[in-house]
Design a protein around this nucleic acid. Structure first.
Lengths: 342, 342
DNA sequence: CCATTTTACGCAAACGGTTTCGTGCCAGGA
DNA sequence: TCCTGGCACGAAACCGTTTGCGTAAAATGG
């Protein structure tokens, strides 16, 4: 077992001082050519690599960024993460991921742990627990310490920091407008509880589109599912009691589960009922028929978040400014809406 | 902006030495009750938290584990990651993720970077690039340095370390046996290139099951897709030229794409053709009909890998022993095979 | 040949902790 | 009064690097 070699080993072995070794390896002008060659050769031979931890301590820079997301199993977060990792890696940063599991407590614990020197900045999407509780002191503490923070997707106005979101209201608006253009009149919305910021915005877009096209807003046409898990019974009773010809869902799982139900009941998609779902993930793509979806551009969002964060980490300014970048959603048309290919 | 406070600050402020503060905060018996109370109160008031980096340098323990996987967007890797994160977090470890993107070079670079002190151990699944190249010197170097390593899913015999895999051969065997019991005779296999260890094992299980049930093995019934991306044309030409009544796919995307194609061609599933896919992911669950799948128990695999790794990190033994844990796959029956519910 | 500059390196502090080993002081015992 | 012991704390080494500064020895100049 060849343990890692340090400057000290090289110095002792070659009979020079540690600082000489350090300088020689940085090709400093201070060190004589002969000595440099000797030291560099020895270092290469023994595969010397400086210890990251020691360098971090010295520089107060870890080259790590912390990513805290509710869940990695959701396709959207996964794509965002990939964008973050890609950009960060290109800039020489590593990514530490913590899953909050939608829990306020886990979010707080993980942040505090990482904030004690392990990372140079955070990228995060708020857990539903945090949004429900409305308590953002853990974020405040982090920003107060001067640790850069970028929020994405699930954000809050309570915290002043860089943010990147898609225009959820606009996405819902586009979807509903598409339904209306296709002649739909009874447009339903399947969503989660209001405390999730994105659901709130999407509901607003839904209402706005109805209003703008002189359709009545009807509470009966909205189904709120309290959890991300599929409640088959709730879906069944909703469709039995409500007459609809189009359904907008705030995520693709809701959409796929609903499509499955109405297909089983003998309805045709998109002839009888159209569907649009948020999140253009793998399910939308491979569903039969393909699910028309509001693409959230997760990977791009991740790259932008990472770019904003690293910018804040690396450049010193006397007066910080914060921006909220709003990405435009894109409607990807597939077979679950009228007049389209499979 | 309240910068992080250090022992030095507290010491200076309270007129004691740094070591006194350190000991007081650890509730050492050496320090007088009065002084301890005073120091602890001050620390709490100013929210003192020790710097992780400094502790890492001192202890030569980072409490970080490195996870290197080919891609996070694949459901299987995602679930494994969740298992790892869950277990590791419970043990006070953070997880640094690097994506190799199926590339040998990225895998090597990321490993070398992390190996220089950033992590206490690695958990990884080999990239296809690495398996294709068959070069494992970067793994060897890591283990030679005494850094614990656990491989999962995509493993190699060339490296001596802990491993956790599912019995891929057995999974394929079970699937094919299921087909045969259902009366299928022309059983196809859609797979990737042989250099991926899991594909090789699954192909072996497929062949073995045919042999054991006196069915002829026919090369024509195997479709090899060179990349993970779906090649619609290859699928179309395969099904046009080959008569099959059952299809085993080495991942769910292949299965879903194939099902879609044969459905579009007017065949009924499972009446005319049955399907089974590996990876029991979200697609299998929400497909219509549901895809019968070989569950790989990713989350469990992740937990076990993390457990094995942390065990190796934390306990010192004079003679290391390595085990390969083989998990049993489970066939999850859904509507894509005969005699079953939707 | 002596003074000055340059070369080539070492010392030591610093990053933020932990921990071992002293050490000054006070109390108690003889 | 002197010695001993324990209490309460401080000094310093250490983890692995970086870097400003000091300084011998060599080179240069006059």
């Amino acid at each position: 077992m060849k343990r890692k070699i340090t400057l000290k080993h090289i110095a002792r072995e070659l009979g020079v001082s540690i600082s000489t070794v350090s300088k020689a390896l940085k090709n400093s002008e201070e060190i004589g050519a002969e000595t440099k060659v000797k030291i560099q050769a020895y270092a290469k031979l023994h595969n010397y690599k400086p210890n990251n931890i020691a360098i971090s301590l010295k520089n107060k820079r870890t080259k790590n960024i912390g990513v805290i997301i509710p869940d990695i199993v959701h396709h959207f977060f996964t794509t965002v993460f990939r964008g973050i990792e890609k950009y960060a890696n290109g800039k020489g940063y590593n990514v530490i991921v913590c899953l909050s599991d939608e829990s306020f407590d886990k979010e707080v614990i993980n942040m505090e742990l990482l904030a004690n020197g392990s990372i140079d900045g955070f990228i995060m999407a708020l857990s539903s627990g945090t949004q429900l509780k409305g308590d953002y002191t853990h974020l405040k503490e982090v920003t107060d310490q001067g640790i850069p923070l970028v929020l994405f997707d699930r954000v809050t106005d309570e915290i002043t920091c860089d943010k990147v979101v898609i225009n959820d209201k606009e996405g819902a608006y586009q979807a509903v407008t598409k339904f209306i253009k296709d002649g739909r009149k009874k447009i339903a919305l399947i969503t989660t509880d209001e405390y999730i910021s994105v659901s709130r915005d999407r509901t607003a877009g839904y209402k706005q589109a109805l209003l703008d096209h002189d359709l009545e807003f009807d509470e009966e046409l909205i189904l709120k599912l309290p959890t991300m898990e599929i409640d088959e019974n709730a879906i069944a009773s909703f469709f039995s009691n409500t007459e609809v010809d189009a359904v907008l869902c705030v995520n693709e799982v809701f959409a796929i589960a609903s499509m499955r139900y109405v297909k089983a009941k003998g309805h045709n998609i998109p002839e009888d009922i159209s569907f649009i779902g948020f999140t253009d993930g793998i399910l939308s793509k491979y569903a039969t028929p393909g699910l028309t979806a509001v693409a959230q551009h997760g990977e791009e969002m991740g790259e932008i978040a990472a770019q904003m964060l690293i910018e804040k980490i690396e450049v010193e300014v006397e007066e910080e400014t914060y921006v909220t970048k709003v990405l435009a959603p894109t409607l990807i048309e597939r077979g679950s809406t009228r007049n389209n290919k499979v």
